[in-house]
Design a protein around this nucleic acid. Structure first.
Length: 263
DNA sequence: ATGTCCACTAGGAGTGGA
């Protein structure tokens, strides 16, 4: 089974690019973030033509998440309870069947903007809510995945410049504590399970030639319970898909893809 | 400090968000 997460930065602007990626990478289940469109504009037919069903939690202009699956999919819930005013940022579904089914959630975590901005303490509170919510159902012996754009750089290994950026947004001790507390409910970073010491990024700013200069951050994660880790075969960050494809503009995030046993 | 991109409003370029 192949699972993935990808912040597409606007699904209307990215649809053709995304379809190329789906055809080439053939994931079974994908979490998308930053759809930037309301649910009634979600292109279900375009994805059904490629064999995918979708559950969506969108809104006008900003945010928005969806799960695509070519395995059977049943919606569980949409929206982080009590945090609706921060936008459409969470959706959860059951994908697959029988003992191989996954409890799959995708997340677009708040950015926070700056440590002096009102959104920063609200971001921290949102993560507190997320941890309490996850603790309700995350169990070591059940296959659950939480994936998405976490907008936190967990460790110095995950940034291009810890010295310059330590203490700034995405890099604060308070954010890192929230991320660690989420994992402590029983989740593992699938990329780090297989690549414990590799400096790799999933996001590069559009500005300033950041991609070319290798100035990125690793903020997009696939997290899984021990039952998922036991099935983990490989993880890749699709860095090539951060590049322009002909005339098609890339998202500022690369997809992250993992292969689970059995295929 | 910021060389880009996306969506919105509006009916053309400027604004806000990331």
């Amino acid at each position: 089974m192949r699972i993935a997460t990808w912040n597409v930065n606007g699904l209307r602007a990215r649809l053709e690019f995304v379809k190329h990626w789906l055809a080439e990478r053939a994931p079974d289940v994908v979490g998308f973030q930053e759809l930037k469109l309301p649910d009634e504009q979600f292109p279900h037919l375009e994805f059904e033509a490629l064999g995918y069903k979708a559950v969506t939690h969108g809104q006008k202009s900003w945010n928005g998440v969806a799960i695509l699956s070519r395995l059977p999919i049943e919606p569980i819930e949409a929206g982080l309870p009590g945090e609706a005013e921060f936008g459409a940022r969470l959706i959860r579904a059951r994908v697959g069947q029988g003992p191989l089914a996954l409890d799959f959630t995708t997340l677009y975590c708040p950015n926070g903007k700056d440590v002096d901005h009102d959104d920063y303490p609200k971001k921290l509170a949102w993560f507190d809510s997320l941890r309490r919510w996850a603790a309700e159902f995350v169990r070591a012996d059940a296959s659950a995945v939480l994936c998405g754009d976490f907008n936190i750089v967990p460790t110095p290994l995950d940034t291009y410049d810890e010295e310059a950026l330590a203490g700034s947004i995405f890099h604060t001790p308070a954010e890192r504590e929230r991320y660690a507390a989420l994992l402590a409910v029983g989740l593992h970073d699938l990329y780090r399970e297989l690549e414990p010491a590799t400096k790799a990024f999933s996001w590069w700013d559009y500005r300033g030639g950041a991609f070319h200069r290798k100035q990125g951050l690793r903020i997009d994660m696939l997290l899984g319970t021990p039952a998922v880790v036991a099935r983990l075969k490989s993880v890749e960050i699709d860095r090539e898909w951060r590049k322009k494809k002909g005339e098609l503009t890339a998202s500022d995030h690369a997809p992250v893809v993992a292969e689970l046993d059995p295929a």
